[in-house]
């Protein structure tokens, strides 16, 4: 298995406050890396720095593109443009992430237009293909986002991310705003797309139950630093760090016989 992404010593601070503190990790191709942490842990800033939606202060984000290794952090906006085809993002809020004034056709076609791909009829066909891939009706293309339910909108968001045939997809809390049954469907969809297209996911989430089910590896963040990382089975079965243990003990089990214990935050001193 080849490496796709290599993040080294990535730092980002806002107003002198470090939100991402010297974070390093690797991601292998066609795997899913879960990034978990509570609010303020820096997980969103981390992935947005990788995407260059915000500019990190220091460190390198090396990406194994179709043209070889490149440090995303050093590229100009112009040099980054071809790489945008390979790295895409699925947002959290399926309401806010789609332009309410554009039809689904226009939303899905936009990435193709930006990158100058194909002519009008080809784009139309491509949109139809991708809609089928995310299991939406072909007639959806002429509708506006408000005509869809939350789960359907998220499918449109996924279609927009996938239409450029990316290799790395960042899912920023992409299922946490959805109802639990819809969430299960979207996770199924993401999993089947991964095996079909060989996608690599960076999966940001606060729900450890979802991460446990969906991810191969996991990275636990606290206050801007990684406190523990490793394969999901390893971390969930045998957590080494106090904070990971605390997080795991806080998951409410759907079995009424497994009661939550009052949490023990003592001894959890992190810098």
């Amino acid at each position: 298995m080849s490496q796709l992404l290599k993040v080294t010593d990535l730092c980002k601070s806002f107003a002198g406050q470090g939100v991402v503190k010297s974070v390093s990790f690797d991601v292998n191709e066609s795997t899913t890396l879960g990034i978990v942490g509570e609010s303020g842990s820096g997980k969103t800033s981390l992935v947005r720095s990788i995407l260059r939606a915000i500019d990190p202060d220091s460190g390198s984000v090396r990406y194994n593109s179709r043209e070889g290794w490149q440090n995303l952090n050093e590229l100009s906006a112009k040099a980054l443009l071809p790489l945008r085809r390979e790295i895409q993002m699925i947002f959290q809020d399926p309401f806010a992430s789609l332009n309410p004034r554009m039809t689904v056709q226009a939303i899905l076609e936009e990435p193709l237009i930006i990158h100058g791909l194909g002519d009008k009829s080809w784009r139309k066909q491509r949109v139809a293909e991708i809609l089928e891939k995310v299991q939406l009706d072909a007639s959806s293309a002429s509708r506006f986002p408000h005509a869809f339910s939350g789960g359907q909108r998220q499918r449109v968001g996924i279609a927009r991310a996938l239409i450029l045939e990316p290799r790395l997809v960042v899912c920023d809390e992409s299922v946490s705003a959805l109802d639990v049954s819809v969430q299960a469907q979207i996770l199924d969809l993401l999993a089947s797309l991964q095996s079909e297209l060989g996608l690599t996911y960076l999966f940001v989430a606060h729900d450890l139950r979802v991460v446990r089910e969906f991810c191969d590896d996991v990275l636990v963040m606290y206050a801007g630093s990684i406190v523990e990382q490793g394969p999901v089975a390893e971390i969930f079965e045998n957590p080494q760090h106090d904070y990971t243990r605390l997080l795991l003990s806080a998951i409410p089990s759907p079995d009424p016989d497994e009661k939550l214990e009052p949490l023990d935050r003592e001894g959890l001193l992190l810098e």
Partner: peptide, 26 residues
Amino acid sequence: LHLLSSMPGIKIVEELQTSSEGWAEG
């Protein structure tokens, strides 16, 4: 049953699973 089986990390016995299908969104 559908709600329970949708919960991440919950595996439901297969025969129960089939009877929960069709409770998809809407």
